[in-house]
């Protein structure tokens, strides 16, 4: 089965929101990957929508680049809108 490509599976949960990555599986093609995802990841009524994408089609940031990519934002608290008074009428933001 080593010939079957790996697929990453994303599920939108019962309560809506974004599709979330839930795991991966093997399948010969996209349609069967959706079917397998249905059986492997939605058995307990977890989802209302499934996305699958070939693992090889994902471009990821390199772990070694963590410093240059993410550290510069650490010291810039002013990027977080925490200095404003939010009127009560607006509710949760």
């Amino acid at each position: 089965m080593g010939e079957w490509p790996l697929w990453e599976v994303f599920i939108r949960g019962q309560h809506g929101g974004n599709h979330r990555h839930v795991g991966s599986l093997h399948a010969p093609d996209a349609e069967k990957a959706v079917m397998n995802a249905r059986d492997v990841y939605t058995r307990r009524n977890e989802g209302v929508s499934i996305w699958v994408v070939r693992a090889t089609d994902i471009t990821a940031s390199a772990p070694g680049e963590k410093g240059p990519l993410f550290e510069p934002s650490n010291s810039k608290v002013y990027r977080h809108p925490t200095f404003f008074d939010i009127p009560d009428d607006v509710g949760a933001m």
Partner: peptide
Amino acid sequence: APILEEDIGIAN
């Protein structure tokens, strides 16, 4: 079953 995914699928 021949592969894990089919095993779960067929059990379902």
